[in-house]
């Protein structure tokens, strides 16, 4: 390699570097935004993660933050304790059942509503339904549960009173307290609260479909159902899969509609406890409330591991089956 090529090489590097800076400078506002997001994640999502070591230690709150590092190692003691808890089976079952029920019912609901709304021809009606269905999203769970109590309580609830006075039932329904009703209540109220909100994203997907496809199909004699099946649904596929993967990633928190903890905590009581106690409420009650942070961390870590496994496997399956995936 002679001197000439070396020099050109050097200047090429320099050149690309200045290019890089030029580009960077050009995009500095955008970078600023990205940077803010990253700082946010760093501070609130990544830096607290070091606390996970607590799960393997005997941490006591009175030792302060430093205690996280100085307390003694106990290995898998806390994991062992949780797995051997007398309620372990019930709690895990409840968490899984509630989560999967939510995926089964709450995931298709907004897709269905979006398709229905798309087919509605009366614009006013469409807007009205959309507004009414997404408003509950903005009510907090505490308030929803309060409303639920006013409607569903077996003694003073509106629904029971109405049904009783109509003579349809002769004993009030114990919707809020019967363990057999909790899952239905939780899934139903979550669908009611979040369906309209998620419909927006699916409506946006539908809006992106080329209208000429519909026209062509119509000319070919496709009916309404056929158009939905062959145009609308395939057109939404990408969005559906991304949302599905996100849903499965957060499945133990309730998926798309979230709120497993809020519901189990607020709607749960000592009567419906056999079906309403889930991993998060248990971690809260037995871990956090008594200052047993190590134990709570261990329980949550188990849950996180399950969640991560679920998101990777669903992503893999989606990639294999449809070609679209999250990463």
């Amino acid at each position: 390699m002679d001197l000439g090529t070396q020099m050109t090489n050097g200047s090429a590097v320099k050149q690309s570097r200045t290019d890089y800076w030029k580009r960077f400078k050009k995009q500095k506002v955008l970078h600023l935004f990205v940077g803010l997001g990253m700082i946010f994640l760093l501070i609130f999502a990544y830096s607290p993660m070091f606390g996970i070591v607590m799960a393997f230690k005997n941490y006591s709150v009175s030792t302060g933050i430093r205690g996280i590092f100085t307390s003694e190692w106990v290995g898998l003691k806390h994991f062992d304790e949780f797995v051997n808890d007398y309620q372990f089976g019930t709690i895990v079952r409840n968490t899984l059942v509630l989560s999967f029920l939510k995926v089964i019912f709450a995931f298709p609901a907004p897709i269905l509503l979006a398709i229905l709304l798309n087919e509605a021809k009366n614009l006013r009606f469409k807007r009205f339904v959309q507004t009414v269905s997404y408003l509950p999203h903005f009510i907090s769970w505490v308030v929803v549960v309060g409303i639920g109590f006013a409607f569903l309580s077996s003694d003073i609830g509106l629904v029971n009173k109405a049904l009783m006075s109509l003579g349809w039932i002769d004993k009030p329904l114990d919707i809020l307290t019967n363990p057999d009703h909790f899952w239905g209540l939780a899934v139903g109220s979550a669908v009611w609260k979040e369906m309209g909100w998620w419909t927006i994203i699916f409506l946006a997907a539908i809006a992106g479909i080329n209208p000429s496809l519909y026209e062509a199909a119509q000319i070919d004699g496709a009916g309404r159902l056929a158009r939905i099946r062959h145009i609308t649904l395939p057109g939404m596929q990408g969005t559906i899969i991304v949302v599905l993967i996100l849903t499965i990633g957060s499945i133990l928190g309730g998926g798309l509609v979230g709120s497993n903890f809020e519901q189990a905590f607020l709607l749960g009581n000592s009567i419906n406890n056999p079906t309403s106690e889930i991993v998060q409420t248990y971690a809260f009650k037995v871990g956090l409330r008594d200052g047993r942070f190590s134990y709570a961390a261990a329980i949550d870590l188990i849950q996180s591991v399950i969640s991560v496994t679920l998101i990777f496997s669903s992503n893999y399956i989606a990639k294999r089956l449809s070609g679209s995936s999250l990463f």
């Binding site: 114990d174 307290t177 009567i271």
Partner: peptide, 9 residues
Amino acid sequence: ILAENFAHA
């Protein structure tokens, strides 16, 4: 007594 009494929030 009411069953619901044990679930008063």
